[in-house]
């Protein structure tokens, strides 16, 4: 699902919990948003907490699904919890203005 990224790409990490309804919706919602607003400018890594609990622990991800918008240190990544059904909230977190659509 990930496009080839360059330095200007938005790096995203989505934690899901198996095939639960919220997790499925989150995956789908994120795909739609990124295609519409960040086509060719994003990298998405999807991690299943049941498969990679240590990664989730490292990132302190306990609520799923959870989207991490990775930025360069020392800034902390922005996190969005939920199935990403509220598009405006997600776009704000991604730093993309709604007007672009």
């Amino acid at each position: 699902m990930a496009d080839a990224g360059d330095d200007h790409s938005v790096r995203l990490r989505l934690y899901v919990a198996g095939e639960g309804p919220n997790s499925r919706q989150a995956r789908e919602n994120l795909r739609v948003i990124c295609e519409a607003h960040l086509a060719g400018r994003h990298v998405i890594e999807v991690l299943d907490v049941f498969e990679e609990p240590e990664r989730a622990l490292d990132d302190g991800v306990y609520l799923t699904p959870q989207l991490l918008v990775l930025v360069l240190p020392p800034a902390t990544p922005r996190t969005v919890v939920g199935n990403l059904s509220e598009r405006e909230v997600v776009l704000r977190a991604l730093g993309v203005s709604d007007g672009v659509a």
Binding site: N22, Q25, V49, T64, V81, G82, N83
Partner: peptide
């Protein structure tokens, strides 16, 4: 924490 839609304690 930014919230968007339903979530759970799966993680």
């Amino acid at each position: 924490l930014i919230q968007s839609g339903a979530f759970d304690l799966g993680g």
